[in-house]
Simulated scan of single mutants.
Amino acid sequence: MKFSMTALTAAALIATAPWAAAQNVAIVNGKAVPTARVEILAQQIAASGRPVDEAVRAQLKEEVVLREIFMQEAQKRGIAASEEYKTQMELARQTILIRALFAEHQKQNPVTDAEARAEYDKFAAANAGKEFRARHILVEKEDEAKAIIASIKKGAKFEDIAKKQSKDPGSGANGGDLDWAAAGSYVTEFSEAMVKLDKGQMTQEPVKSQFGWHVIRVDDVRQAQLPDFEEIKPQIAQQMQQQKLADFQKNLREKAKVQ
């Protein structure tokens, strides 16, 4: 049996048709839209933590088809030759290149376990010691604070006065409660007065700070409760990585010859 060239060509096209279809999402106005475009978008979605199921893939296929339609129309109108387009493309090129530079630096300079541990040890040393569960009432004038101290000594409840008179909106609504914190968390005048108090004691004189006049009571004292290293290791590593990147940027700026 003899086959013509036309028959052989048709057979070849039929044989390769499934392969060609797998390579392209669609053919838009005669131009192939490669499946790779869908995969790029799918990878971006997956990287953000979202699952990429068949429904999402269907949406992505429609997305790349629409993009191709819109791009073809933009090309037809000559938009790619406009100065505005060229300017935006240059800015996009710079952004992508700089992002790639920073990503490469971070990949080549990861935060090691030893570095993270050393940073944790510094954190632990700085935050070790006592923590105070304190309350305060903040008012504008010294006379107000003195009157409050006198009322409490006569039997008025600290918490009730804080709710009614404290100018600190955060703690006032909670009866003046400041929760657990180290002395260093407060302004100097406040912390110096607070650390002199034992559990259950209140300042006998108003304490002045930049915020006004305070009446302070210490409800409890304990040793600082620090999180375990493994618990906060990811946060430490992230902060240190950001610092390394900032140092890298600063170093490049300092070395550059800018005239």
Rank of each mutant, 00 (worst) to 15 (best):
S4T: 15
S4H: 03
T6K: 01
A7H: 05
A10I: 12
A11D: 04
A12M: 12
I14W: 00
T16V: 15
W19I: 15
A20V: 15
A21S: 09
A26N: 05
V33R: 07
V33S: 07
R37D: 06
E54G: 13
A55V: 15
A55W: 06
A55F: 08
A58I: 00
K61Q: 12
E62P: 00
E63Y: 06
V64F: 01
V64K: 04
A74D: 01
R77H: 11
Y85A: 14
T87P: 00
E90A: 13
Q94N: 09
P110G: 12
R117I: 06
A118Q: 12
A118G: 10
E119V: 08
Y120N: 05
G129D: 04
E131R: 01
A134S: 15
V139E: 01
K141N: 04
A147W: 03
I149G: 03
I152A: 11
K154E: 13
E159T: 14
Q165A: 15
S166I: 14
S166N: 05
A173Q: 11
G175N: 08
D177P: 09
L178W: 05
L178A: 12
K196A: 14
K196V: 14
K196N: 10
L197F: 10
K199L: 06
V207M: 02
K208C: 07
S209V: 12
H214Y: 06
H214C: 11
D220K: 14
D220L: 06
K233E: 13
Q239E: 02
K244D: 07
F248Y: 04
N251R: 14
E254N: 11
V258F: 03
